[in-house]
Each structure stands twice: as C-alpha cells, then as structure tokens.
Amino acid sequence: MRPLRLALTKGRLEKNTLALLESAGFDCTALREKGRRLVLPVGDALEIVLTKAADAVTYVEHGVCDLGVVGKDTILESDGHFYEILDLGFGRCRFALAAPKGTDFFSGYAEKTVATKYPNVTRRYFDAKGMDVRIVKIEGSVELAPLLGLSDGIVDIVETGETLRENGLCPIEDVAQISARLIVNTASLKLRKKEIETFADRLEAAVKKQEGEK
C-alpha cells in the first residue's frame, strides 16, 4: 500500500506544519531540502504534496491525498465533503466584516454592497442575518473596494487589523475564527483508520506540547 499522502498548503502553513511534524518526531529532511520537487517523502510511511490551499481541499476530497493541512478559511469557502479532525492551533486569525471608519454599515434599508475574496462565506453570513446584500468578488486587496466607492464594506481575513486601520477601515463584527486544520478523506479514514489515527494522535500531542511551551 502506498504511504499516507498529506496535501500541505504552501507558504506560512507549510513552515508551521514542518515545525509541528518535527516536534512530533518525523524526519523532515526532504522537506527542508525540497528544491523544486512537489512530492516529498517523510520516512517510509508518509508523503507530502505541496499545493495551493484550495487545491489541498480538492486533492483530499477526491481521495488522491488522504490528509491535508489547510486553513479554516479555505474549508469554509470550499463547501467540500471530508472529515476535519484536528485543530492544529497555528495560523490563527479571523474572518471579519469591516467598513470605512465613521460609517454605520447596518443602518437603513438601502441595499449594501460587500466586496470579498470569499463569496460563499459572505453569502452564508448575511443569509444567517437575514440581510440581502450584493456581493462582489475581488481577487486582490479587498480593502480597495470601499476606498474606491465600489462597496459599503468588506469580508476578509483579519490578523492584527493593521491593514484595515491604514486604509481607514475598522472591523465591525467577527464572522468566523480561523486556524489550520487537519482534514481527512472520508474513504481513507475508513480504509486506513489505524495509520491515520496514529498520525493524528502524534500531531495532537505535538500541538499540546507547543501550546504548553507558549
């Protein structure tokens, strides 16, 4: 049987995951010296595939990767079908609704326009509020949209709130909390239960250890 395959979101989550795997006792030499390779062995029993966030979800959903490390933001936007078994504790931030300083986003009955990179998250959030808003999908810096007068507010990932402040926006309400998660393909968890549970337990112990150190 092939080794367990883990789709890992490139970039910041990759570094944190690497640290977590090493703290859990995995040999990540190949990952540290990866060069341009995208599929990397970690010991005999694990293989890591480096992907973009949304692709990690796709690979796991189709079962070509058994496991994935992705941000909750990607999970919420993807609406996919898989198991989400562990909060890895890092990559913490939040989805928030923000609007230009001094404006009252919720006032009045006129239709509001919201710019976002995450239309599904935004749609669900306003549906739950019973509000009918116009959603505009923006690919780059979402903060521009209200500055240029395209939207009344934005729904975006907020870490420190610095970018918002510098662009004259202020957070109004949290939409959801975000952190990195370990996701598992539904069939894989059933077919390779022991291996996956052992792996998840080792990561969970490492997460607890790291949280203890903080």
Partner: peptide, 11 residues
C-alpha cells in the same frame, strides 16, 4: 451502511 474501496475517494 456504506462501503468503501481503495480506488475511490468516496463511498
């Protein structure tokens, strides 16, 4: 009840 096979990522 559901059944799974290795060749397929879903039931």
């Amino acid at each position: 009840f559901s059944a799974y096979v290795e060749e397929h990522g879903d039931a």
